[in-house]
């Protein structure tokens, strides 16, 4: 057994252990902390699986922003836990038995998958010339399966609509989430002044690198969103009220541009969502830049929550 395999087994065991802890620990707050740690380690697993793009996404969105979301909810819901009754032991035992059965079936099915495995990697590499981007994952996301990516942007937009629809009637059109205040001379405010310039540069770099190396709109957008959130949480910035035209424009810019480019392709080129080879790279990068902005704003607003305060302070 090589050192790499031993490392992988240890990593898998720790990941599993954290997963178990997340499920069984009685306090919800601890479970969220466990989940964040789990998310960071899973990002390592993705690196071991040679999927660095996914590792970045998992770390930024799965573990990072998802963790912030869960932690915030756990803090606000702290007393709600007390209302729940415990599931009876027999039910838990049978659920455990079923889950184990399911795990066995899944593991069995994965282990007997055919060899050599079918793959689209050669096809994706062969067609990469059409877009002149050399990151195959970006190619799949932006060209070959652009439809899924566009629909998923609409999913994000609908999540925003869904979250906003939970506002109480008097707060409609107001600012999402509570107003945060922090000691202006405190260390958090210091961080919030120091970090965003760096974070924004890193976010843009990750977006830009996405054309040829791991990275892209999601990962860059998540970093930008976290910078914005830092400013919001320290009170340096406030969430914009949801009735503002510009914030709505930013939120739909990504899917909107995608749709427009798609329709232009339908009218003047081969097909919906096709790019003329000469313009493919600038077009895709243009969509990606817009999408990064949209993703950053969407993720930030999803974390901020439903409108709670009227627009005037």
């Amino acid at each position: 057994m090589s050192i790499a395999t031993v490392f992988e087994i240890v990593l898998a065991a720790v990941v599993l252990g954290l997963g178990v802890w997340t499920i069984v620990v009685p306090e919800t707050f601890s479970a969220t902390v466990g989940f964040v740690a789990y998310g960071l380690l899973v990002a390592l697993v993705w690196v071991r699986l040679d999927a660095v793009d996914v590792a970045l996404t998992e770390a930024a969105i799965g573990g990072g922003l998802g963790g912030v979301l869960l932690l915030g909810a756990a803090a606000r819901l702290r007393d709600a836990d007390l209302m729940a009754e415990k599931t009876p032991g027999t039910l838990r035992a049978s659920a455990a038995a079923l889950s184990v059965l399911m795990a066995a079936a899944l593991a069995g099915a994965v282990l007997v998958l055919p060899d050599p495995a079918p793959t689209l990697a050669p096809a994706a590499v062969a067609k990469a010339g059409a877009t002149s981007l050399s990151n195959p994952v970006t190619n799949v996301l932006m060209a070959f399966r652009a439809m899924d990516t566009m629909l998923e942007k609409i999913v994000l937009l609908l999540a925003v609509v869904g979250v906003w629809s939970l506002a109480s009637d008097f707060a409609w059109g107001g600012r999402p989430g509570p107003r945060h205040e922090a000691d202006p001379r405190g260390v958090l405010v210091f961080l919030a002044r120091l970090l965003p310039p760096i974070g924004i540069v890193v976010g843009i770099h990750v977006l830009w690198a996405g054309a040829d190396q791991p990275g892209g709109a999601f990962q860059g957008g998540a970093i930008l969103a976290s910078m914005w959130l830092l400013a919001i949480m320290t009170g340096l910035a406030d969430t914009p009220s949801v009735s503002l035209r510009w914030i709505r424009l930013i939120l739909v810019a990504g899917p909107g541009l995608f749709l427009v480019v798609g329709l232009v392709g339908l009218l003047f080129d081969d097909a919906f969502l096709s790019y003329p080879p000469a313009l493919a790279k600038p077009l895709i990068l243009g969509i990606e830049v817009t999408m990064t902005l949209t993703i950053a704003a969407t993720l930030g607003l999803l974390l901020a929550g439903a409108p709670e305060r009227s627009a005037q302070p």
Binding site: L188, F190, L191, L195
Partner: peptide, 16 residues
Amino acid sequence: LLGLLAGATVSQLIAR
């Protein structure tokens, strides 16, 4: 450097 910055900030906050 970023790790140092984050660690220092968070420990300040927790300590406070």
